Amino acid sequence: MSPEYELQGAIVARLKADAAFLQVAGGRIYDDPPDNAVFPYATIGEAQFIRDDATCISGGDVYLTMHAWSRAVGYPEVRRVADAVAESLHLAPLALPTNHLVSIMHRQTRVFRDPDGLTSHAVIDFAASVHKPLA
């Protein structure tokens, strides 16, 4: 199974159980949010896997982008959601079904207003190192 897919499942499960994320976003985490999604919420975004095999080790790095969304005035609410996501996942000991997560690290967060002029948007970037277990 792809490490990106396994990582997404582990992230969704962790955030849905995280008290801080539940408090600021009501546990709302989507891959593809419904048209009537209640704000604020977070989404799983783009992912890229870069293979970096070594002798006796198959693995690489997953670069994962997550997003936080808010319609509250200003940036405070979207920053709280983004911070809850980053704090929950940074160095989290996530268990993956077939891959082994070596580490996941929060790299950066960018916050800006979307072109609609109403939506505050945070882009939260992570890097994760994964290996396939040796057979």
Rank of each mutant, 00 (worst) to 15 (best):
Q48S: 09
A19C: 01
Y63W: 09
I11M: 14
V12D: 04
T119W: 01
Y30T: 13
I104G: 02
L7F: 05
A54K: 14
G45S: 08
A10N: 07
P97V: 10
T65E: 15
V111F: 10
A95P: 03
G59R: 12
P40A: 03
S58Q: 14
Q48I: 10
D52G: 12
K16S: 05
S103Y: 14
L22S: 06
P97D: 09
D31C: 03
F49N: 04
H131I: 12
R51N: 04
L15D: 07
A54L: 11
S103P: 00
V38G: 02
E6C: 06
G117M: 03
M1I: 10
V85M: 12
V62E: 08
K132R: 11
V81R: 00
S70L: 01
S120P: 03
K16W: 00
P115F: 06
R113C: 01
R28I: 02
I124E: 05
I50A: 14
I29V: 15
V102T: 15
E77G: 00
R14P: 02
Q48H: 13
A54P: 00
A37I: 11
R79D: 08
V111R: 02
A84C: 10
L7C: 08
P115W: 02
D53R: 11
H121W: 12
M1W: 01
A82S: 13
A19I: 08
H100Y: 15
A135F: 11
D35R: 14
I29S: 00
V102M: 12
A82G: 12
P93D: 08
D61V: 14
F21H: 04
D114F: 05
A128V: 09
L89H: 07
R80T: 07
A37D: 09
T119I: 05
R80N: 07
L134F: 12
L15F: 05
D116I: 05
K16R: 15
A128I: 11
V78M: 02
F49Q: 07
T119S: 06
G60Y: 07
A135N: 15
D52T: 09
F39V: 00
A68N: 01
L118R: 11
A47S: 13
V102K: 13
Q23D: 13
L89I: 13
